[in-house]
């Protein structure tokens, strides 16, 4: 195994993991506190990327575009919460699935109407378009390092928010025992809206960071949403630490699996078969990981304390 390739792929895995964490963190908080399943979370990520691409094109600056895209993404999230989602708190999960599905259909089509069905061009900002030389002569795109750094910084900030502030205390209390919030006399509606806005911001942030390296298109959220589900199942519902651990695991296993598994399969099977079996197996790898976690610990590796769901 080429050590340089391994290093590069590990960084790629880390970068995917960081993006997954940003999406999964919002999802898991909303699940944990409101017992609400929001399938449209992936669409919110996608819209973040569209906003950033558009505002960057208009202002000519990635940072300015990002600064405008972030509040816009939060605004969409808050509008969704006010208009649709709040009516479905406390309803069956089935109703929530359907309602958020309807929102996905609507928003995806709306994006198609506004921006067209073809992927949007969203270039990597000039100040990060070079490659950085790492140890041992390996080179790595600076922008991807920027994603890793930015994501980790947000993760640290989020951890501080949840672990240190009164808002975080309420969030933790709500995730382990939703009824306790009422007992504490919290303004539930406001807390829900805040948590939702926070989730929308994290998803929007992930979208605007991912935009330049992925293709900005209406279906870009689907894939990430389902990976985020896998992250949450592995990490444990309602827990930020769990989402972080799960996201890094999924990011690394998926990326490393895709780059090395086909070669590994070639050692066992003839090359002609390995071409089919390798990719099929590597795309299954994270789900096998999820199945293994389910068998060992159905509530995930680091569930929110006291959570029973």
């Amino acid at each position: 195994m080429d050590p340089i390739l391994l290093a590069v792929q590990t960084l790629n895995g880390l970068q995917l993991g960081v993006l997954l964490f940003l999406v999964a963190a919002g999802l898991t908080l909303v699940f944990g506190i409101m017992d609400f399943i929001n399938l449209a979370h992936g669409v919110q990520y996608m819209i973040g990327a569209y906003f950033a691409a558009t505002f960057t094109a208009v202002t000519g600056s990635f940072l300015l575009g990002a600064a405008l895209a972030l509040p816009a993404a939060v605004l969409v999230g808050v509008a969704l919460e006010r208009v649709v989602f709040r009516h479905f708190y406390g309803r069956d999960h089935l109703d929530q699935v359907l309602a958020t599905f309807g929102v996905i259909f609507f928003l995806t089509e709306l994006v198609r109407v506004i921006w067209g069905p073809t992927p949007l061009s969203f270039p990597v900002p000039a100040w990060a378009s070079h490659s950085v030389t790492l140890f041992g002569g390996a080179t790595y795109p600076a922008y991807r390092l920027f994603i890793i750094g930015g994501g980790l910084a947000v993760a640290a900030g989020l951890y501080a928010l949840v672990a240190r502030t009164r808002f975080g205390m309420l969030v933790r209390a709500g995730a382990s025992n939703p009824r306790m919030l009422q007992a504490l006399g919290t303004d539930i509606k406001r807390l829900f809206l805040l948590v939702f806005a926070l989730g929308a911001m994290l998803a929007g942030f992930a979208g605007l960071m991912a935009g330049p390296i992925l293709s900005v298109e209406p279906s870009m959220g689907d894939n990430l949403l389902i990976l985020a589900f896998v992250v949450i199942v592995i990490g444990g519902l309602g827990s930020i630490q769990g989402a972080f651990l799960g996201a890094l695991l999924v990011g690394l296993v998926d990326t490393l699996g895709r780059s090395f598994l086909t070669d590994a399969v070639k050692l066992v099977l003839p090359a002609s078969a390995a071409v089919d079996v390798g990719p099929a197996l590597s795309s299954m790898l994270i789900y096998v990981l999820m199945a293994a976690v389910l068998i060992v610990s159905p509530t995930g590796l680091l569930p929110a304390k006291g959570a029973t769901r």
Binding site: V233, Y287, P298
Partner: peptide
Amino acid sequence: RTRGVYFIMITLAFAQMLYYTANALS
């Protein structure tokens, strides 16, 4: 082995696994 939101996510995730597997069958 799970219920509620977990069950929804897991059935979806495994279905997606089959979807990607079909995609990979060149």
